[in-house]
Amino acid sequence: MPKPSGFSYEPRADGTVTLTHRTRAATTLRGDRADKFLTEVESGDAQLVMARWTGAYKFGNERMARNHPRNR
């Protein structure tokens, strides 16, 4: 599976975090979720973390791969 790219985030003064994908707003995190996201993005691969938090990490072929005889 290709590594996700094109994600960025912007922490704001009011405590919210805005995640964007290729300059379009993907999601806004507030409160505890924003804090958890910031600690996780600092400790791991930032692009993968942002893809996971936005839900854009699945590309549609997971069901077919799961049903393949090699993966049973």
Rank of each mutant, 00 (worst) to 15 (best):
M1K: 10
P2I: 13
P2D: 13
K3Q: 01
P4Y: 10
P4E: 11
S5I: 07
G6F: 09
F7I: 07
P11E: 10
P11I: 03
P11T: 04
R12W: 00
A13P: 04
A13M: 09
D14M: 09
T18V: 15
T18P: 00
T18C: 08
L19V: 15
L19I: 15
T20V: 00
H21K: 13
R22Y: 05
R24T: 10
A25E: 14
A25R: 10
A25H: 00
T27V: 15
T28D: 05
T28H: 06
T28I: 15
T28Q: 12
T28N: 06
L29A: 14
G31F: 12
G31K: 14
G31H: 14
G31M: 13
D32N: 03
R33H: 14
K36N: 04
K36S: 08
L38I: 06
L38A: 11
T39D: 10
V41T: 04
E42N: 15
E42D: 14
S43C: 04
S43K: 13
G44A: 14
G44I: 02
G44P: 00
D45M: 06
A46D: 05
Q47I: 09
Q47E: 13
V49K: 10
V49E: 06
M50R: 08
A51I: 06
W53Y: 15
T54F: 02
G55D: 12
A56P: 00
F59P: 01
F59Q: 15
G60W: 01
N61H: 11
R63C: 02
M64S: 12
M64C: 06
M64W: 11
N67I: 07
R72V: 07
